[in-house]
Amino acid sequence: MARFFVLEEVSYCYPGSAKTGVCQVNLELEPGTFLAVLGANGSGKSTLARLCCGLLKPTAGRVLVEGYSTANDEELRYIYQRVGIVFQHPEDQFVASTVEREVAFGVENQNLSSRAIRQVVDAELARFGLTALKTAHPHSLSGGEKRFLSLADVWALQPKLILVDEPLAMLDPGARERIARLLKELKTNGQSMIWFTHNLAEVMAADQVLVIAAGRVVWRGQPAALLAMAGQVRAWGISLPPATQVASALGIDRSPVVNVDELVAALWK
C-alpha cells in the first residue's frame, strides 16, 4: 500500500522573480495527523500549501498522495479527490450565487444524483450553521459566515487531507472558537489536516509542527517545545500566545506558559 502523503525534496522557484519559493522540503504524513506549518509572511507557506494539493507543480522533487504524483496531469484528479484546500481569502473561491449552490459545486463535479448531492449539502449546511442562510448570496455574508462557507465547500468533498491557509485571519473570538471545535471533530473522523499560519496560539493542539523560514524547513517537533524557545520563535517571525510573550518579557522561564491561568499561577499562586 502506497504511503498516504509524502513530500520528497520538494522545491519550487517562481519563474523570473526574486520571490522566495520553497526549497528541498521533506515530509511524511500518517493518516489522521494534524500538522501545523508555521512561518512568517513571505516564508513560503502559501507556496507550500499550493504544492501540497497540486495547484503548483514542484520544479524539483515529488509530491505523492497515496502513490499519485502531482507532477502528472492524469493523476491530478485523484489528488483533488483526496486533498482539499481552503484559501486564505474566502471570496477567492466562491463561484455560485447562493450559499447552497456554493456548497454543492464540488459535489456536483463528482457527477452524483441530485438527491445524493442534496444530502451532502444539507448535512454540511447544518454542520457549519448555514442552513438559515442557504439562499443568501455568498458575498452578502459576514466575515465569519464567509469563512464557514469556505470550510463547508471543502468539507462537503470529504477529502482525506484538508489544507487550511490562515483560516482565523479577521475573525472575532466567537467564530474562532467555533472553528477550533470543528477541527477537533475532524480528528475524530480520522481525516488529516495541515494548518498554515504565523500564529502559534492557533495550533497548540497540533501533533507535529514544521517551521518554515525563507522557503526552508528550519525546525520540526511538538508545539509545546516552541514555548521554551521564545527568542528563536520570534526571530522566525512567528507570533507566540500573548501569555507566553508576557511571561518571557517578565523573565518567567521555569515552565512554559500558554494561557492566562498559567500566567496568573506563575505570578501569584
Binding site: 463561484v95 454543492a104 456536483e108 441530485s114 468533498l157
Partner: peptide
C-alpha cells in the same frame, strides 16, 4: 481574482466539459 477562482474550481474537481451532477 480570476486566477484564484480558476484555481479554486480546479481544486474542487471541476473539469471543463466533463459531465456534472446538479443540486437542482
Amino acid at each position: 481574482r480570476a486566477l484564484a477562482i480558476a484555481q479554486a474550481m480546479e481544486a474542487r474537481g471541476y473539469v471543463p466539459g466533463a459531465p456534472r451532477g446538479s443540486l437542482y
